[in-house]
């Protein structure tokens, strides 16, 4: 097609107009569908409660991974499979890990300790501060989690979390469990088994598994309730926050570390 004059081509304008309209619909439609999907899903958590955890590292056994296995099962992480052709090392770096076992040695004294590391459920969570869409949020009862309807997968929360507690879903999901919906391209982390707690349970999967092994290193409960076991333990034993220097007032505390 050759056009010698510089008069605008109206057909082209019409085409451009329609293209822009189609692109706009394609951009807006998923958002509208989301809003519809979210309708009526609001149920409040109480601010009179603050869920927390106390971990006694002296009781955390070397080589035991019962808490990790239980978490993987509870949240369907064990259903994820390594994508074909991916190396083990890369898969380990990419697969979600809500809770992990870490073995530490004190640089000065040489004392070795084991502990489970997960989202510390900060009172002032950096992940919530940086999230552009409010997908990363803190419930009134102190549980920090991700609204996977709002997460756009920007991974800024992963940059901000001082505990490396967050995982991004790098590949397609073939199977998942009802209580822990999961989607490729979104971020997730430990939510203190919010589904169980909201259903009336008093323990998390990791705590149950640890107790079943006879270690009893994990104690979960309401730290605002003075009569709860965790509150009493916190009053009795000296406990620490990890990276206490950041003053995030974590909901997860450790003793003997």
């Amino acid at each position: 097609m050759s056009q010698k004059n510089d008069q605008p081509n109206m057909k082209r304008r019409e085409f451009l107009g329609k293209t822009i309209a189609a692109a706009s619909v394609a951009t807006i439609a998923p958002g509208v569908m989301l809003t519809v999907a979210r309708a009526g899903s609001d149920e409040g958590a109480s601010g009179a409660t603050r869920w927390g955890m106390l971990i006694n590292t002296a009781k955390c056994a070397n080589g035991c991974s019962a808490c990790v296995d239980a978490c993987d099962k509870e949240n369907g992480i064990d259903l994820l499979t390594k994508p074909e052709g991916q190396s083990d090392e890369m898969w380990n770096a990419q697969r979600p890990q809500w809770i992990r076992k870490v073995t530490l040695r004190d640089k000065q004294t040489g004392v070795v300790s084991n502990l489970p590391m997960m989202c510390q459920h900060c009172e002032k969570p950096p992940c919530v501060d940086v999230c552009p869409t409010t997908a990363s949020f803190k419930r009134a009862d102190g549980i920090v989690m991700v609204d996977r309807h709002l997460c756009i997968g920007c991974r800024y929360c992963m940059m901000a979390c001082p505990y490396k507690a967050r995982s991004f879903i790098h590949s397609d999901i073939a199977e998942q469990v009802v209580q822990a919906p999961r989607g490729k391209g979104c971020v997730e982390s430990c939510n203190l088994c919010a589904n169980r707690i909201d259903g009336g349970a008093a323990t998390t999967a990791c705590q149950d598994a640890c107790a079943a092994q006879g270690h009893h290193a994990i104690l979960f409960g309401d730290i605002k309730d003075p009569n709860s076991a965790i509150s009493k333990a916190l009053k009795t034993f000296e406990s620490k926050q990890i990276r206490a220097d950041l003053e995030l007032n974590t909901g997860v505390r450790y003793t003997n570390v």
Partner: peptide, 25 residues
């Protein structure tokens, strides 16, 4: 490069004013 680029509209409609990212939008 977002995990969910199809949710761009969410970034435009759901703001967390404490987030530098949201400010940048």
């Amino acid at each position: 490069d977002l995990g969910r680029p199809d949710r761009l509209i969410v970034a435009m409609t759901s703001y967390n004013f404490k987030s530098i990212f949201a400010w940048n939008v």
